[in-house]
């Protein structure tokens, strides 16, 4: 099995890695690049814990091959904050107690940020449907939805 050299940009940083064509982008992020913030909860695109953006598009990184990342810009949970300044979503998740075990949190933050990047004023229903592919077993989603709505509200006021 020959490996393929892949060059990409992850969270703004240029990276190079060797990928077996069978490895998912999630495998490569975690095992090759040491970016373990993205999680594997299912490996079948059903839980969203591995959510990342590829050229700005929200995807499950378990359903993308590592070799497909060639030339792409990847965004992961590790790139959401600006240095030590948290993104409003990250702050609101902590303030609203929108995480318990925290395992689904990276994927939900990446997904919620993708939502707010394209819709500054989502309704509760829009938030719930957008995040339907991000399973959380601890919170019952209540505080997650509130945190996303509150972050959106704060970001609107800041503009």
């Amino acid at each position: 099995m020959s490996k393929i050299h892949v060059s990409a940009v992850v969270n703004g940083d240029p990276v190079d890695f060797l990928a077996d064509p069978r490895e998912s982008l999630l495998d490569c992020l975690r095992d090759q690049l040491g970016l373990t913030g993205s999680k594997e909860g299912c490996g079948t695109g059903d839980c969203g814990a591995c959510s990342v953006t590829v050229d700005g598009v929200l995807v499950c990184s378990c359903l993308v091959l590592g070799v497909e990342a060639e030339g792409k810009a990847i965004g992961t949970v590790e790139g959401i904050s600006q240095g030590s300044t948290l993104h409003p979503l990250q702050r609101k998740f902590i303030e609203h107690a929108a995480l318990q075990c925290g395992f689904c949190t990276p994927g939900i933050l990446v997904a919620a940020k993708a939502l707010l990047d394209q819709n500054a004023s989502p309704t509760e229903t829009e938030v719930r449907y957008w995040l339907a592919g991000n399973l959380c077993r601890c919170t019952g989603y209540d505080k997650i939805v509130r945190a996303v709505m509150d972050a959106a509200s704060e970001m609107r006021e800041a503009v």
Binding site: G45, S51, L58, V59, C60, L63, V64, A111, L115, G133
Partner: peptide, 9 residues
Amino acid sequence: VGSTQVQGR
């Protein structure tokens, strides 16, 4: 078909 994430692909 699938989630928001799956819709991206």
